Simulated scan of single mutants.
Amino acid sequence: MEYLTLNNGVKMPILGLGTWDLRGSPGYKAILSALSVGYRLIDTAKMYANEEIVGKACKDSKIAREELFITTKFSGSYASYEGVKRGIDESISLFSDSYIDLALIHEPYGDVFGMYEALQEALECGKVRAVGISNFDKNRYLSFIKRCAVIPAVNQIESHVYFSQLDFKEVLNAHGTQMQAWASFTEGRRNVFAEPKLVEIAKKYNKTAAEVILRYQIEHGIAVIPKSADVKRQQENLNVFDFSLSEEDKAQIALLDCKKSLFNWY
């Protein structure tokens, strides 16, 4: 596993497991299998309603807590100062833990400044190790950080070969915020695994299109959290640290970028 160093010195795995839609016993088994094959970052959210099984899988994995990196996100009924204060303690309890590694505002809605104040207080007292945001576009991000005493360590946003947001990544870099991608595989909005150019490039390296996609993002310094409940796919997603893409191949992949969201989030 490779690690990134966040703006407060905390080290975060560059690749983790997204857990959207992983619930109940099947979800627990999927998270446990991911941990068993080498994942160390698990990304969840209040919205996912699965923090308890994330905590149980982490405990049952018998992996030392300091080796794990757990992210959660707050939105909806938690979109206020009091909501985040309550949510932090609730999440820690559901994880059967004493701290959260990374806590994010899930969406740029609600009382974001009150939410962030609560996150900063949790950071100061050791309940979280790093704080950040999710789904803030460039304008919202730049407006937000003008009022922040603590620059967000992470901005988790949509990013894939059809909407890389590499230009936004440069803005984030300039201010010390790490970009983390959700929807690396487009969540089914496009059949990215059958994209001819990606399939062609993958054959050159004896890799899959999925591995090429993740490698492309990682080589641009983007953290990734692909979701998979299948242990073979989980292992495949981890198998991206033993090759590098040529500059020519990266230039070819860049041509796929339509610079338009597939989710109309922005």
Rank of each mutant, 00 (worst) to 15 (best):
G16P: 01
I53C: 13
V240K: 00
F243D: 03
I100L: 10
T19H: 08
N139V: 12
N155K: 15
E195C: 06
M47F: 02
C125E: 13
Q235Y: 13
Q165S: 12
I31D: 13
E248W: 00
N139I: 12
G83E: 05
I88H: 02
Y216M: 11
E124S: 12
V84N: 06
W265E: 15
E52R: 12
I222T: 14
E187C: 11
E2H: 06
A64E: 11
G16H: 00
K73L: 15
C58D: 03
F241C: 02
L22V: 02
K169D: 09
K85P: 08
D111A: 07
D257N: 14
S61I: 11
R189G: 13
H220V: 07
K207S: 03
L4Y: 11
H175Q: 13
Q180C: 14
F69V: 09
S36E: 14
G16C: 01
K85R: 15
Q234E: 10
I63W: 02
E52D: 15
K73A: 09
I253N: 06
G27T: 07
A153K: 12
D21V: 08
E200L: 05
V154S: 10
S159T: 13
L104V: 07
S77N: 14
N239W: 00
S143V: 04
C258W: 05
Y141H: 02
L6W: 02
F263R: 11
T44Q: 14
A130K: 09
S246F: 00
S159F: 06
M115A: 09
P13E: 05
A149N: 15
F113R: 14
L255T: 15
Y162E: 09
V54S: 04
Q234M: 08
A229S: 07
Y3E: 07
V112K: 04
I222G: 00
K146I: 14
S91L: 11
L102C: 14
A181F: 02
G132F: 03
P108C: 01
Y162F: 11
E200N: 07
E247T: 06
L245M: 08
P108W: 10
H220Q: 06
S246T: 13
V231W: 12
E52T: 12
I42Q: 01
P226I: 05
V54M: 06
S134A: 13
N135K: 04
A118C: 07
N8M: 00
P152A: 05
L102E: 09
K11G: 04
Y28N: 08
Y3S: 12
V112P: 10
L35T: 02
K127N: 05
G114C: 07
R233I: 04
S61M: 12
L123M: 09
I218V: 13
E187G: 15
C148M: 10
V240E: 00
A45S: 06
